[in-house]
């Protein structure tokens, strides 16, 4: 009986641990953008076209997420009228950097061009 309880405990904790393995990006970015009209992929291309370099893009994105304004938003007016500007992020700087790095790595065009 005791062995069964221990085994169940191990399985339960493993499942919970697996949830924690999800990255900050997956937990905080994907859930909302999954339903938004602008996909993360399209948004990346808009950011890339506007800011060009890795450091410049990451810096601009971080600044916007920490303090989103209509002026700084790259979305069109119709989108903002319908959905307004997003709320300020609740993530720490470290978490924000991690999420943005993951985002860059995922859609970096250098790795995809051939």
């Amino acid at each position: 009986m005791v062995k069964v309880i221990v085994l169940l405990g191990v399985i339960f904790s493993t499942v919970l641990g697996a949830e924690e393995v999800d990255s900050v990006y997956e937990r905080n970015c994907i859930p909302c953008h999954r339903y938004a009209p602008a996909s993360l992929e399209k948004l990346f291309m808009v950011y890339l076209k506007t800011y060009s370099g890795e450091l410049t893009l990451k810096g601009a994105l971080k600044a916007f997420l920490k303090n989103p304004t209509e002026e700084d938003s790259l979305m069109n007016d119709t989108f903002i009228e319908n959905f307004s500007v997003k709320d300020k992020t609740t993530l720490t700087d470290k978490e924000l950097d991690e999420a943005i790095d993951t985002y860059w790595e995922l859609y970096d065009v250098r790795k995809k061009l051939k």
Binding site: Y51, S52, G53, E54, L55, T56, L113, K114
Partner: peptide
């Protein structure tokens, strides 16, 4: 994802940094 090529010239692209 295929980079545009030409037989008259070669090209390269660099970012703002």
């Amino acid at each position: 994802t295929t980079y545009p090529r030409s037989n008259k010239y070669r090209s390269a692209i660099y970012d703002i940094e």
